[in-house]
């Protein structure tokens, strides 16, 4: 690392911390919304099912960049809201993450076999008991690995917050690039930092996955 760029180490690290924070927040909120939408997907009411499908498909189909733009400029003008880049980025990231999470939740629940429902029902459990004691504990294990994938994907999407001026890792890099006039080295450092963060997360995820297998 050249001394010119190295002098900005603190800016790089702060940027990385902001990236971790906002993507974690979006994963949390997206997980909450995703559980609700995912449960709607398997509801017995057709209207709820369709609503959930529409939600998932719309937010899976619109590019996150377009969502950032829509949240930051669109909502600000349309609702006369002065949304901060942070608020807009959180909303946009949550929308994308929740669409992904709703699929993860649905797949998790559907992975629990029919026989499990039958066995639980035939022991006299109600729907909510079947869910709580038999289906959910199994679904959670299935949901874990793809949730790690959603986190990594959300973390990468958070780079797009740079477009609306939110200073996370990518924007930090772009600012350093403007200040120093050095492109390649700065961008490479940013890329390496993303790689290290995401690869570490995927390693942690893999070890959690092993730990979560039924046989210990």
């Amino acid at each position: 690392m050249s001394p010119t760029v190295g002098a900005f180490w603190y800016v790089f690290l702060t940027g990385a911390a902001v990236t971790l924070w906002i993507s974690w927040l979006a994963l949390l909120l997206g997980g909450l919304v995703g559980v609700i939408v995912g449960m709607m997907r398997i509801s017995k009411w057709v209207a709820l099912r369709w609503l959930a499908v529409a939600y998932t498909e719309v937010f899976r189909s619109i590019p996150p960049l377009v969502l950032f733009f829509g949240c930051f400029y669109g909502l600000s003008y349309a609702l006369q809201l002065d949304l901060s880049p942070f608020a807009a980025a959180t909303v946009a990231l949550t929308a994308t993450a929740s669409a992904l999470m709703s699929e993860v939740v649905r797949a998790g629940i559907e992975s629990v076999t029919h026989g499990q429902w039958q066995a639980a029902y035939s022991s006299g459990m109600r729907y909510d008991q079947v869910f709580r004691y038999v289906v959910w504990p199994q679904a959670i294990r299935v949901m874990l690995p793809p949730s790690i994938g959603v986190y990594i994907s959300t973390l990468k999407d958070s780079s797009l917050a740079s477009i609306i001026g939110y200073v996370e890792l990518t924007k930090s890099g772009l600012l350093i690039r403007e200040t120093t006039g050095i492109s390649f080295e700065v961008l490479l450092i940013i890329a390496v930092m993303y790689f290290v963060i995401n690869y570490s997360i995927s390693l942690v995820g893999a070890s959690l996955e092993r730990k979560f297998k039924y046989v210990h």
Binding site: I152, D157, S159, T170, L174, F184, L187, L188, A191, Y194
Partner: peptide, 11 residues
């Protein structure tokens, strides 16, 4: 897989 597409484009 672990680097955002945006960063690859800038690079």
């Amino acid at each position: 897989r672990n680097i955002p597409l945006l960063v690859v484009i800038y690079l």
